[in-house]
């Protein structure tokens, strides 16, 4: 399985994301700049955290108009797996690939610490290595991660089981404790916590590794099915 880590001006978790895919699950990975316009050769697209374009105007608001985002949209529509973490999640929201928005934490504080997540949905391309309801120890690092959507959208998210991760102790005021959501088709996941920072014991937790293993398993199963 071949991954692309998209690098925007101001990305700063791109190396962690690369490490998770390259060393965590031994896959081939390329850094791909925001100016690229073809992602056809990749099986998985990773949008890392950071402060793309300085978070000017709104987090992710300017990055979503990068040339590479047209390619990300194209591959997402073709069913490729797309994972956006933290600022990557914010970009997916601004781009309309996922519903809702995130904005300033209710506490107004930047929170950088491990939190506990609950796997709300196990049967996805991103969570099949976990148990339903499993509790994960994964770090967050954001000042603007409070998820918001209108009532109708929340109802849709619940009905279609698009809420994949919730916080057990809500750190930012997110609606319905939402930490991560998936699109209706099930191939685009966005989350504020950083699974790529929890892929080996030395980092304090390995609980994020399952997410990358899940993507790999999903891809392998699809390859077998195609043969």
């Amino acid at each position: 399985m071949k991954f692309a880590v998209i690098v925007f001006p101001g990305s700063n978790c791109d190396v962690d994301m690369y490490h998770a895919a390259a060393d965590g699950i031994q896959c081939s990975v390329d850094y791909v700049p925001h100016t690229a316009n073809d992602l056809g050769q990749y099986d998985g697209i990773l949008l890392p955290g950071g402060f793309s374009y300085g978070d000017y105007l709104r987090c992710g608001a300017i990055a979503r108009f990068s040339p590479v985002m047209d390619a990300v949209k194209k591959e997402a529509e073709a069913g490729k797996l797309v994972l956006g973490v933290c600022n990557g999640f914010q970009i997916l929201l601004e781009a309309g690939l996922l519903p809702g928005a995130v904005y300033r934490n209710e506490s107004l504080k930047f929170h950088c610490r491990p939190v506990q997540l609950r796997v709300e949905r196990q049967n996805t391309a991103f969570t099949n290595a976990y148990e339903q309801g499993q509790l994960l120890n994964i770090p967050i690092a954001h000042g603007e991660g409070k998820y918001y959507c209108d009532d109708a959208t929340l109802e849709q998210l619940r009905k279609r089981r698009q809420i994949v991760f919730t916080y057990t102790d809500n750190p930012n005021g997110s609606l319905a404790d939402i930490a991560g959501i998936i699109n209706e088709a099930g191939n685009v996941l966005g989350m504020m916590p950083h699974p790529e920072r929890a892929v080996e014991e030395l980092l304090g937790s390995m609980d994020g590794l399952g997410l990358f293993q899940s993507m790999l398993k999903n891809w392998r199963d699809a390859q077998h099915a195609a043969v």
Partner: peptide
């Protein structure tokens, strides 16, 4: 398109 996010 850019200056406001109609969701919030």
């Amino acid at each position: 398109k850019l200056l406001a996010n109609p969701v919030i």
